[in-house]
């Protein structure tokens, strides 16, 4: 288990992220046209900017569970990717003490052409485990994922979404993470497996693992997370105890509680 750190596990300070791209008429940009533009001084289409996150700051303590809420496009996935170290923020700072495990979307981070076994090993190595550390817990991971030997040796593209999530969660849960980042996925899979995941998450949290969960399943959020961030257009709309934030959010969107 990860030893509980004294300070916060995650601290995010004034993080902003803007996506920029040039809308080219013929779809994607080619090297040939880029070189011609340069040589002939041809005007290029101006960059289109989308602010995905602006000036976001928060902290997460060891063992704490934080929910990230908001509509699609509010910046939840961008925030999670920044926390995971995939995207770099344009400004501000992110610090995470210890190993990060992440579950983004369905079977994400898995290579469709490789077997489940190979993918699990590579995911563990990407997260920072050594090969011997992974081999030592491989059996446990595969048993947790409830996949047969044949399934483990088959390419991940042949997996159902439930199988991919099971394996993804099994790997993430066995990394001894200081921070577990989960995007939506836990609603997939059968009820028994969901219960097993919840149990595992509480065990990890008791050991000091912090959880950041982006979800539209408000029932689950209410049950799991003590604190919530509500993002709107990349800005922090409200933060505080989950019940308060959820009540405000639901009052506005008038969606019945899940």
């Amino acid at each position: 288990m990860s030893s509980p750190a004294l300070g916060p596990i995650v601290s995010v300070e004034g993080v902003s992220k803007t996506f920029r791209y040039r809308p080219y008429a013929r779809g994607s940009l080619t090297l040939k046209s880029a070189l011609l533009d340069l040589v002939l001084f041809r005007p290029r289409p101006p960059k289109v900017e989308t602010a995905a996150l602006s000036e976001l700051s928060f902290e997460v303590a060891p063992g704490e569970a934080l929910a990230v809420l908001g509509k699609n496009g509010a910046g939840k996935s961008t925030l999670l990717r920044i926390l995971a170290g995939i995207y770099r923020p344009d400004s501000g700072s992110v610090s995470v003490q210890g190993r990060r495990a992440l579950l983004l979307e369905l079977g994400a981070g898995f290579h469709p052409e490789l077997s489940g076994r190979e993918n699990a090993r590579i995911s563990a190595l990407v997260a920072g485990l050594s090969d011997s550390e992974f081999q030592a817990r491989a059996e446990e991971v595969f048993a947790f994922a409830e996949l047969s030997e044949e399934q483990l040796d088959a390419p991940v593209r042949t997996y159902s979404s439930g199988m991919a999530v099971r394996l993804g969660f099994a790997v993430a849960a066995h990394l001894d993470p200081a921070l577990l980042i989960v995007d939506e996925v836990l609603a997939v899979g059968d009820v028994a497996f969901q219960a097993k995941c919840r149990e595992r998450i509480s065990a990890l949290r008791e050991g000091g693992t912090a959880l950041i969960l982006a979800s539209h399943a408000y029932g689950e959020v209410r049950e799991t997370c003590s604190r919530a961030l509500w993002l709107e257009g990349g800005r922090l709309r409200q933060s505080g105890p989950t019940a308060e934030v959820l009540d405000a959010l639901e009052a506005e969107s008038q969606v019945p509680t899940a």
Partner: peptide
């Protein structure tokens, strides 16, 4: 070829 890792993991 490695896009699944680069896009969705800290690779």
């Amino acid at each position: 070829a490695d896009a699944p890792w680069i896009r969705q993991a800290a690779f």
